[in-house]
Amino acid sequence: MWYRILLNRLILAAVTLLGVAVVVFVLVRVVPGDPIAMMIAPGASEADIQDLRVRYGLDLPIVQQFTVWIKGILAGDFGKSFSLRQGVVGLVVGRVPATLELAGLALAIAMGLGVGIAVVATLARGRWLETLIDNVNGLVLAVPDFIWALVFVLVLGVLWPVLPISGRVDPRLDLDLASNFYLAEAFFTGQFKLVGHLLTHMIMPAVALALPLAAIIARVMKGALQEAMLQDYVVLARIKGFSRLRIVLQEAMRNAVVPVLSLTGVQFTFLVGGTVIVERIFSYPGIGNMAIDAVINRDLPLIQGLVLAFAIMFILINLAVDLITIVLNPRLRHG
């Protein structure tokens, strides 16, 4: 059962990735902008430009370029960045942990906030507090993540400067870390002062990314909880004389969480997409920020590598959501 789902997903993932590879490969070559022009000083001779074109294989027909690229990937070589003159794999792998930690933190904040608000709204059913929550929620839902990011920078970074507004760590800090998962490693090696320091840098971008998702989770979760509260088994629990909070958490939550979870999976991919702009605003050294540089520089191999990295993250997120759904729903486990 488990391995069958996994195998299915792996095949599907391979097909998806191939599709993404084709689309991104064609797209970056169709959009205007010449990568060679970005590399070379103005006024270079036509012969020099042609020389570079040949060197990077850009003179070949597009189909042939593609097969060269794919052959490289199958051998583990994603090419070399035009602008940074390093292997794409090393560049992307070095940056992915920063984005994963930011997105993970944002997801945790979004789920905590969203579920918490939904529970409070359910308990406050029919009172003014529920109306207030609904209205604030609608407001938050309407504001995109990068607006929050700009507001935070303005308020907490400039007007009342309490939080750092750029980067992942203070560059003067001497880090004693082996991996690029700074937050996780600092936490598990007990360097809690560093954890705190990292969090001051991550909290604004993370909350900016989290708020729209939190509002969506709160809205859907509240609906699911209120529907679950009408189920016979919840009414029976009320007749057993349990407290409202216990009933919401113990009886309603687990059955309400399943629809919320599948939605969160889809929405989380939007959150990861949102890191591109939010990382830029906070000069956060993740792959989103790198992607913008890569596009500006027309760095074709790097753009391709980054898009594939995003695609792989999306696929893994959806796989994880499906597996968690099965764990949470005993009726699916035996099917």
Partner: peptide, 18 residues
């Protein structure tokens, strides 16, 4: 729950499925 209890109508929906 302690002094007053209920035997519900529909056993298919009165137990929490999860």
């Amino acid at each position: 729950g302690t002094d007053i209890a209920l035997i519900p109508q529909d056993p298919m929906t009165a137990l929490n499925p999860s």
